[in-house]
Computed example of a mutant assay.
Amino acid sequence: MTRRAALLLTALLIALAGGTGPAQATGYRYWSFWEREGKAWTYATQGPSTARPADRSVQGFRFAVSEDSQDASQPRGEAGFTTICAGTPARDGLKRVALVIDFGTASDAPSGETPPASRTACARLAPDATTADALAAVAKPLRYDANALLCAIGGYPERGCGEQVSSERKASRASEDESGGGPSLGIVAGVAAVAVLGAAAGWQARRHRHG
């Protein structure tokens, strides 16, 4: 193999090795706020203190480490308004709002804390009440910071509020899940590229020897 080919092979192998490791990213640990239409969650465009949900709305909260709204984890669970508010009958002059409160996973929890089990609740409120009012009715104690950022629901977490943390993401997680933990398509293609490059380099070296 020529020296140039060897260098190319080494560079490609380093690039492939780097692509298989976890990517470091900066995220924030916080409660994200969601609205649901049918079975689809949408990241809320305003905060719970200003959102005024209509009667029979479903609102969700998820505690997790996220880089931004595109990366945020959605609330889990399939229960809809009818199921969540089955035990809360309608009353004239009041609205009902279903809440899905997902306390997240242990990996997203602050050090020394354990997330409670996720739960749902139905709040019966005045027509102009906000989502924050709904939370206050069914999920106390709540905690806010000086900038009105929601820090804790039901007392969780006990400390912290939107703090910056280092998180890890595996680029090939979906591929690994589909293949049962085997190598991802990108890795297989990379290995094939190395084999092709090595064969070409060997052919070129033989050509020079016999030329």
Rank of each mutant, 00 (worst) to 15 (best):
A44R: 04
A44G: 06
A44W: 04
A44T: 04
G47K: 10
G47I: 00
P48T: 02
S49L: 08
P53C: 08
P53K: 01
A54P: 00
A54R: 10
S57D: 11
V58N: 01
V58L: 13
Q59M: 15
G60K: 03
G60C: 08
F61L: 12
F61K: 03
F61C: 04
F61E: 02
F61D: 03
F61W: 15
F63A: 02
F63R: 02
F63S: 02
V65I: 15
E67T: 12
D68R: 05
D68A: 07
S69A: 15
D71P: 07
A72H: 03
A72G: 06
S73A: 15
S73R: 13
P75H: 08
P75N: 03
R76D: 12
G80E: 11
G80H: 02
T82K: 14
T82G: 10
I84Q: 05
C85R: 00
P89V: 10
P89A: 08
P89R: 09
A90R: 14
A90E: 14
R91K: 13
L94V: 05
L94N: 07
V97I: 14
A98C: 08
A98R: 03
L99M: 09
L99H: 04
F103C: 00
F103Q: 04
G104K: 03
T105H: 06
A106S: 13
S107V: 07
S107D: 15
D108N: 15
A109W: 02
A109D: 12
A109S: 12
G112A: 08
G112M: 06
P116C: 11
A117R: 14
R119F: 02
T120L: 08
T120F: 10
T120Y: 12
A121L: 09
A121R: 04
A123Y: 01
L125D: 07
L125Y: 06
A126L: 14
P127H: 08
P127L: 06
P127T: 01
D128Q: 13
D128V: 02
A129Q: 10
T131N: 09
T131Y: 00
A132V: 00
A132W: 07
A132N: 10
D133K: 03
A134R: 07
L135F: 05
A136R: 13
A137D: 13
V138M: 12
V138Y: 05
A139F: 05
A139D: 11
A139R: 01
K140P: 00
K140Y: 00
K140L: 12
R143S: 13
Y144L: 12
Y144P: 00
D145M: 04
D145V: 05
D145T: 07
A146H: 07
L149F: 11
L149I: 03
L149S: 13
L150R: 02
L150M: 06
C151K: 02
A152D: 09
I153N: 01
G154R: 08
G154E: 08
G155R: 09
P157D: 07
E158Q: 14
R159D: 13
C161M: 06
G162K: 02
G162Y: 04
G162R: 10
E163G: 11
E163H: 09
Q164Y: 00
Q164A: 11
V165F: 11
S166T: 15
S166Y: 01
R169M: 07
R169G: 07
K170Q: 14
A171N: 08
A171M: 01
S172G: 01
S175D: 15
E176L: 14
D177L: 15
G180R: 06
G180Y: 02
G181M: 06
G182E: 10
G182Q: 08
S184P: 10
L185R: 12
L185T: 12
V188C: 03
